[in-house]
Amino acid sequence: MTWEWQVAIDLWLAGLAGGAYFTAFLADRFSGGKHEEWVRIATYLGVPAALIGSLVLAMDLGEQFRAWHLFIGLSPSSWQVVSTYGAASLRTWPPFLNLYPISPMSLGSWILLFWSLIGVALIALWFAKAFESVEEANFFGTVASALRPFLPALNVLKWIAFALSVLLITYTGVLLSATNKGLWANAFPLPALFVASASLTGIAAILIIMSTAIGPSLRTLFGTAGEATTGEAVATLGKAGAVVILIEIVALALYLLWIGLLSGPAGAQAIGVLLSGSLAVPFWGGVVVLGLLIPLALEANVLRTRKEPPAIVLTASALCVLLGGFILRMVVVIGGQL
């Protein structure tokens, strides 16, 4: 098998990173800047997650030390390829840079790189903001004051990171569907499914941090940002998560129908493996029950009643979502190659 758990890990972590930022940014913007704390959490969490995912993927390459070829091509053959054959003609520009928009892996690598770089810049600027009052000539004060002139860029960077996070979560699905394997090929609902799942795992990651002791300790560590998050706001995020679960269920059904009915015999066979073959247990048990139905049932209480749910319910359902999200990536990655 050419792609194994490493690819699933990367698709999961990149989705989680992008999804957390994407959903946190939406919540913050729509509420008029009330939830900047979530955006920060998403970034603190997402940048390391994305980097770990990339590292795992780089370790999985046949030639790990050539991972930089994803960005720079110093061999003449990579940038002097002059071709009149369709998509290949995109490959002559820009020289020395390996940027091939038609290849989801090439585009995805660049998106991942820029999203992580901007994430690091955001963390640095928030750091400068947190130490705004420190004027003494200690190390933190000096670094903070050196970064302070760049603070006006904060808002623009947040918007760019938002745009990149949308592309990041989409890339994980497009990567697989631009192939010729039965379970992946030509499947328009696959990027949709992965976008929904990435948003869901992103929400789950934020929920776990906000509904456990990690949230308050972050607040102590990095200072306040926006309004203090109330239990009600966390419950609203949980409700949003429940709606995303419904969206993901629709996307999953569309995906299965698409592959089973429209992708020919190879697709029908791949669906068989998923629904009743060797991957049936992880699919039904892990993806559907653990990852979607149990969290939905747990959060149904949140949707039905107005009272704030106990933290343990939110945490439990978020953990199920995270695990289910990983099993989904695993089942799709492995199932495509059986």
């Binding site: 050539r66 070829h69 994803l70 091509g73 053959s77 990579s78 940038w79 390829v81 071709s83 369709g86 998509a87 290949a88 490959r91 390996n98 091939y100 038609i102 290849s103 989801p104 892996m105 090439s106 690598s109 631009a178 192939t179």
Partner: peptide, 9 residues
């Protein structure tokens, strides 16, 4: 078309 490094050409 999918090669990210231009190795396949």
């Amino acid at each position: 078309s999918v090669c990210p490094t231009g190795a396949a050409h």
